[in-house]
Design a binder for these strands. Structure first.
Lengths: 148, 148
DNA sequence: GTAGGTGCAAACCTTTTGCAGCATG
DNA sequence: CATGCTGCAAAAGGTTTGCACCTAC
């Protein structure tokens, strides 16, 4: 799925929810789809402002909330006090490894892991909606360079 | 291990690190050990102030940082903007399920799950230090009561 | 006696909100 | 043309910090 298609899909869904499709939202969605990084609200604001310096921080926050509710974006907590986001469209579910030294975030997926979570939840009577798994440690490069 | 023993252990470890053992730290550690809840810094402050109303918020934050570095306490993010902590002493490693309706946090442990994480990390060359797994959904009670 | 710790209050930083004006449907 | 959205600036709320005083070792 190309960005334009994804962009249209978001537009369609928001309108269906009775929300308006403004030039700001269009720009923010495009910027969010264009990066595969795990961005903070402020970083996304920076990206948007390259196109239109007048976009306000409040609008970015408000739009991220809308996108999260609509399921196009997911928050993830990098443990540094800032919320980070990633878009979910055309992006299979995955978990994250965070390098505590250089900060790099690597995505991975393990089906057995997913399955065991379901099993564990069922045992406790939980119905899982979503989950968050983050492994913290040292990436290959940092191990080579710096011990630990 | 009783609280007094755990308390002594923390004291011993901090002193070994060249840190001082003050009446405030003693009180904060005792309060932290006494609860099995997942407390915020502010809640812990409240507990401490029942014994000594003069303990300052800054000291609680600073002490939590020290305890986290020494490995006696672990942070966990409940997704509500506040950091939460739990003590680790005499408390085997476990993961958390969070009910999105009533907010209850249930601890669980699954060895196979732990193992698969190691495997996944090794495949990517990561050396894991710690991890955080949270499953979000509906607990048994909330499913019964309220759909979802 | 001298690090290191404490309390206070102010600073910080991310996120949220009130409000007046604007643009979408 | 009504409702929802935006921008601005101010507020909120959790956490950190500067500084003067204090205390454990």
């Amino acid at each position: 799925m190309r960005i334009d298609d994804e962009h249209g899909l978001v537009r369609q869904e928001l309108k269906q929810r009775g929300l308006r499709w403004t030039s700001q939202r269009s720009r923010i969605v495009r910027a969010a789809l264009a990066t595969h990084d795990h961005y903070t609200a402020d970083e996304l604001l920076g990206l948007c402002r390259r196109d239109d310096p007048r976009i306000s921080r409040a609008t970015v926050y408000r739009t991220l909330t809308v996108l999260e509710e609509a399921g196009f974006v997911e928050g993830l907590d990098a443990g540094d006090g800032k919320r980070r986001f990633e878009h979910v469209l055309g992006h299979a579910h995955h978990d994250h490894m965070v390098c505590l030294q250089c900060g790099v975030i690597v995505e991975f997926r393990d089906d057995e892991l997913e399955h065991r979570q379901e099993v564990a939840a069922r045992r406790l009577g939980f119905a899982i909606k979503r989950h968050s798994l983050r492994l913290y440690g040292s990436c290959r490069d940092c191990q080579r360079k710096g011990g630990a």
